[in-house]
Simulated assay, not measured.
Amino acid sequence: MLAAEAGAARNTLAAYRSDLSLASATLRGGLVEADVVGIGRLAEGWRDLAKSTVARKAAALRRFYAFLHEEGHRPDDPGAALPRPGTRRALPRTLDHDDIARLFAGLAARLAPDPPDPGDLRLAALIELLYGSGLRATELVSLPRHAVAPDRPYLIVRGKGGRERLVPLSDRSRAAVAAWRGHVAPTSAFLFPSGKGHLSRVRLFQLVRALAADVGIAPDRISPHVLRHAFATHLLEGGADLRALQSMLGHADIATTEIYTHIDTARLVELVTTRHPLADPDRDTGPR
């Protein structure tokens, strides 16, 4: 149902499968028939987990029991007995402009040899697309070989829920991809192939952290998703419209995009103190 009707992404399906399997193991295979007592046992086992984790697990089970009830596999829906912990969305981790400059300086040093190592050309293309276009890790590693065209300043990405969107591409990104693509086999279906498929998200994570460590950025401060956050944060600092940012990031709900407004406080204060008509007592604002 999640795949066929809701259009859930592969990673979402994997997360639901994991949560349901763990819950089933806790109830010794009695997940489908679980009553309020059984659900209470599940909730008790989640007591030491983070609120966000409990919320995710409970949401998966609520969806599961609602499905069973709607399809006639259960006469009732016990999902109401699952906990609903209050969750507060944490501010996304990001990098400042100096951190980004160090990353790209490190990339430039790696690309200095003539000819550069193909692995470094691949890394440059990955980093340029992560920070330059704000792609999700899965979207990036699964790009088709010809997704980036040399004469087209955008690419079309299929994101969460199967939704397609246009993603802007800088000249730098296209140049980096072109340099790397010369090392990709013409028969490859993917821009970043590995084995019989494409580069894994885990390997991408490792490559990003290794580069960060080389330039003196603590590895625990960075990940592919942190570079996506940096893309969004720096665009917003530069004056990007929130709706445009929502479109570029592929957020279904603008409330998700609005989280970035909370990490730009300094810029908002500066705008009020320098641009507001009452900020300058000598400015003539006309009749009051």
Rank of each mutant, 00 (worst) to 15 (best):
P186D: 15
T53R: 00
A252C: 09
M1Q: 05
Y260M: 13
E5R: 07
L140D: 08
W46D: 10
G106S: 03
T53F: 00
R74H: 03
G161T: 05
V177C: 08
A240T: 11
A55K: 02
V202N: 02
D264A: 15
G29W: 00
L111H: 08
L126M: 00
G40Q: 03
S247P: 00
Q206E: 14
A15D: 08
A15E: 10
A124N: 10
L2G: 10
P219I: 01
L91R: 07
Y65S: 12
V215N: 02
G119K: 09
L204K: 05
D114N: 14
E270K: 09
P153I: 10
L245E: 08
H183G: 06
S24R: 12
G197L: 01
E71L: 10
G250E: 12
P193Y: 01
R93L: 04
A178V: 03
T233M: 02
A14H: 02
T187K: 10
R174A: 08
L126D: 07
H234K: 07
S188D: 12
H183V: 10
L22A: 15
G159W: 02
W180K: 05
G238E: 05
D280T: 06
L121T: 12
A125S: 08
A189I: 06
R63K: 09
D151L: 12
A34G: 01
R221V: 07
D151S: 14
R228N: 10
A179I: 04
G7Y: 01
L111Y: 06
E139N: 08
Q206S: 12
A213W: 00
L61S: 13
G106Q: 04
E33P: 07
G216M: 04
H97R: 10
R209Q: 14
A34C: 01
Y16P: 11
W180R: 07
S194I: 04
G7P: 06
D114Q: 15
R275E: 13
P118C: 01
H251F: 02
L227T: 08
L27M: 11
A14L: 14
